[in-house]
Amino acid sequence: MERPATYLDHNASAPLLAESRLALVDALALTGNPSSVHQHGRALRALIDRARSDVAKLAGAERDQVVFTGSATEAITQAIVGGARAFNVDAIAVSEGEHGAVLKAAEATGLPVQLIGLDADGLIKVDDIARMLEQADMVGMRMLVAVHQVNNETGVVQPMGRIEALVGASPHYLFVDAAQAIGKTTLDFASRAPDLMAVGSHKIGGPTGIGALLMKGHADQVRLIPGGGQESGRRGGTEAAALVAGFGAAAKAFPEHYRAADVGELVRFIEAGMREIAPDLVVFGAAAERVGNVSNFAVPGLKASVAMMGLDLAGISVSSGSACSSGKVGPSHVLKAMGVAPALTECALRVSFGWSSTKQDAEAYLNGFGDVVGRHRARHGVAA
């Protein structure tokens, strides 16, 4: 009997929630343009308005602070490239552990990019930010600081309170990539310091192809795609009403399906089980606060490419880091920034749980992991 597939790559993309699928399909049955004033257009506009309210609630934002985009990557690019123009900044500061979308958007501005380090636990070095801002103030420069709230590879929760206290009390600007934070940790955009924040749909069980940029009022001129005035002029192009509706439904339903305590227990269960199988296991970011649904680890000598292949053949889907790296299996820039030795970064795997994960998934994973480690030991003559 064929073993059922086990999906443990929620940080790449969560399975579509039933509520989101229903909202998406229902919206696809409607005809019209959301900008039209007739009844067909108004029906679509009502769906978008409802979704905007639901996304705002999950993000702790005001309804009119939510601007729908084609993805979290687009939201990130609008925030950084559009923000650099609108705020007339002189340089961009990004941490070395940012998602590739943030790093590439910073490069795309054509401005000097200053890199903020990570410590050995995967935490952004706040002292680096303080030093950069102090130096900028001395020469009259204005900076846009771009950081992530939760690391997509390690799950490490960043010290946002300290970062916000630094940047929020300065003439500089703060953008936060919250794609891995929304739904998993409390967001309170409306009352916190960030000027801009990006979130996505498919990380919380919504459809791909839709994200949102959260914008404070003074950031209304941060634009990237001109057009016919959609999204109050902040993002051109006819809204994809069905995708927006699916995003909104996911934002509303996700808290009902995602139980952080239960998901965290699954991660603790597999980490304990892996240590029994491989006592030399290294868990990255283990000493820091983690969001709870992800484990990034390595068994020294067991290459990620080999382990992933073995697990995939066993019907278990995991990853070696960001899924936005063209499917490649290669060394992680996040782990490199943490000072992890190159030989160990080549062995790093990421297992991420989510709303659909079960104890059976965790047990199936440990069985597969045990088989992979066992074959590796036998091949290299290592005693069990």
Rank of each mutant, 00 (worst) to 15 (best):
E2N: 07
A5K: 06
Y7K: 02
H10S: 00
H10Y: 15
N11R: 05
A12K: 14
L22S: 08
L30V: 03
T31G: 12
N33W: 14
N33Q: 12
H38E: 10
H38G: 01
R45P: 01
L47F: 09
K57M: 12
R63S: 09
I80D: 02
G82C: 07
N88I: 15
D90N: 08
E98G: 02
E98R: 04
H99T: 04
A101L: 03
V113A: 03
Q114Y: 06
D119C: 02
I124R: 00
I124V: 12
V139R: 15
G140E: 09
R142P: 02
A146D: 12
R162D: 13
R162H: 05
R162V: 00
L166W: 10
A169K: 15
Y173P: 00
V176A: 00
D177H: 07
A181E: 13
R192C: 13
R192H: 13
S201W: 04
K203G: 06
G205Q: 10
P207H: 12
G227C: 07
R235K: 09
G246C: 03
A253G: 06
Y258L: 01
G264S: 12
F269N: 00
R275T: 10
I277S: 00
S295P: 03
V299S: 06
L302H: 04
S319E: 02
C324E: 08
S325N: 14
K328V: 08
P331K: 09
P331D: 11
K336D: 11
G339F: 14
T345L: 00
E346L: 02
A348E: 09
F353V: 12
Y365G: 00
Y365I: 00
V373K: 05
R375L: 01
R375K: 07
R377M: 01
